[in-house]
Design a protein around this nucleic acid. Structure first.
Length: 203
DNA sequence: AATGCGATTCTCT
DNA sequence: GAGAATCGCATTT
């Protein structure tokens, strides 16, 4: 069997809040030692290029850390947070316009055992099944994603790939304010976090 | 050269 | 629900 078609560059050349919703249901896959591992995306956050004071790229302008945010649509932006965890983003809109979608959670479907092994290495207690990739740092651990893929793309079929999945209507998703951005005075409560309803039967 | 903190997670209470 | 872990990087001196 072959993998579903990849999302192309133009898919990402749109406002991040729109892409963030459309990515729900799409598959995130990473090339692990033994093949592709991953599953459908169930939670995202959008970071916008205008007036969004929670956006790294607007806090300090272009830096070595966030340079990938200014890349062409489909570029991968991975940063290290709290000195220990990685967060995966997909850059949106045209080159030099710093918008991105933070991938916050996926539903483990392919290579589940491999993900558990990677995650369990970092823990002392047993890993509940529903916490394998239920957070931006967790999914990067599970999929072995780090800064080495920063600046690459999700459209070339290498390392990290996004592929067409089921479409999630607004009836089956919820939006809320983004996590960990309370410090932002203007955009701190913007409802740019999107989640597939827990009751939605996603495969 | 020194300082302060973050788009998080884990463990214990 | 609180506190620790832990470090790259932007900011300040």
């Amino acid at each position: 069997m072959s993998l579903p078609e990849q999302r192309t560059r133009s898919y990402y050349n749109r406002p991040a809040d729109q892409v963030a919703q459309d990515l729900l249901g799409d598959w995130l896959l990473a090339d692990d030692d033994a093949g592709w591992i991953g599953g459908p995306i169930i939670e995202t956050e959008a970071y916008l290029s205008t007036d969004d004071d929670a956006n790294h790229a607007l806090q300090s302008g272009k830096t070595d850390r966030n340079e990938a945010m200014f890349g062409p649509p489909g570029t991968i932006y991975v940063y290290l947070i709290y000195g220990m965890y990685h967060c995966l983003n997909v850059v949106c809109r045209e080159k030099e316009v710093p918008e991105a979608v933070l991938i916050r959670a996926i539903h483990p479907r392919k290579g589940v055992q491999r993900m558990i092994e990677r995650r369990q290495e970092e823990r002392s207690s047993d890993l509940p099944q529903d916490e394998i990739a239920s957070g931006p740092g967790k999914l990067c651990m599970a999929l072995n994603i780090d800064r080495s893929v920063d600046g690459g793309t999700v459209i070339g079929g290498d390392n990290v790939s996004v592929r067409k999945g089921v479409s999630i209507s607004e009836d089956h998703m919820s939006s809320s304010s983004r996590i960990g951005v309370d410090y932002a005075e203007t955009a701190g409560d913007w409802p740019l976090r999107y989640r597939v309803d827990d009751s939605y039967p996603i495969d």
